[in-house]
């Protein structure tokens, strides 16, 4: 587990410049007694210097107390928006230069390849990430939503400290194989969406409880008949 050790971490996917609570949350998280936070260049525009949110997650508020600094590789646009998954070696070097500056640290503790790029062999992606470790820019490597065979190939190139994949009471898929693979390969498992994107909090009784612009309105499990069936299960 190494750098992902910690019983619970806080995801920042939902942070954005419009969220009045984001700064407060950041301060809460900067408390060294609290768990580490998950930071990604495109997950949450608040982390992107170009959107003008200066006093936020990446402005150095998070690092006291030995909290883990993490960053993820994915293709980001000028506003920090998600463009595409990219595992190309030449791409990986770019966010690796930008991440320490954004996070206000010298070295990134844990860098994720955010999702497996189907167009690039995983050995090439992880090979390039391993070079970043050797160059002293990154301490540990992570992958996201990698299949067991992919993880196995990755670990043959360089140790993988963490796999971040969806896992919760309503997404039990990892139990089929990947949890055991992680255990065997000594890869820590970081369970994202552990609350089923809010469904498991019991706060939503109808689709109408979601705001008009809520992304979950376009999510299969929150739509129409599916939502009602899932509610009956819970």
């Amino acid at each position: 587990m190494r750098s992902v050790r910690g019983r619970l971490q806080i995801g920042t996917l939902l942070f954005n410049g419009k969220n009045p609570h984001a700064l407060i949350l950041t301060r809460v998280q900067s408390d060294p007694r609290k768990p580490g936070s998950d930071l990604a260049p495109f997950l949450g525009q608040i982390e992107h210097p170009s959107n003008g949110c200066e006093c936020t997650v990446d402005r150095g508020h998070l690092h006291p107390g030995g909290l883990t600094h993490r960053d993820e590789f994915a293709e980001g646009g000028p506003q920090g928006e998600f463009l595409d998954v990219s595992g190309r070696p030449e791409y990986l070097r770019r966010p690796c230069e930008a991440s320490p500056k954004r996070l206000g640290v010298e070295v990134i503790d844990l860098s994720y390849q955010h999702r497996v790029d189907p167009a690039t062999p995983i050995k090439e992606t992880v090979g390039a990430m391993a070079e970043l470790v050797r160059a002293g820019k990154v301490r540990y490597l992570g992958l996201s939503e990698a299949a067991p065979a992919t993880l196995r190939r990755a670990c043959a190139v360089h140790p993988i400290a963490a796999l971040q994949t969806e896992y919760s009471l309503w997404t039990r898929d990892p139990e089929r194989e990947i949890l055991a693979t992680c255990c065997e390969l000594k890869v820590g498992f970081v369970a994202y969406s552990p609350l089923g994107r809010g469904f498991l909090t019991g706060r939503f009784q109808t689709t109408g409880d979601l705001a008009e612009d809520d992304f979950r309105r376009h999510h299969p499990r929150f739509e129409g008949e599916n939502f009602q069936r899932n509610l009956r299960l819970a």
Binding site: R7, L8, T12, N19, H21, I24, C182, C183, A191
Partner: peptide, 26 residues
């Protein structure tokens, strides 16, 4: 709460599993 039980369930699966819930609210 339901959220706490859902997270506790994930935590109970293995010491090597770390849930990472996100939220907008303190």
């Amino acid at each position: 709460s339901p959220a706490q039980v859902a997270l506790a369930w994930v935590l109970a699966q293995s010491a090597d599993i770390v849930p990472i819930p996100g939220t907008k609210h303190v």
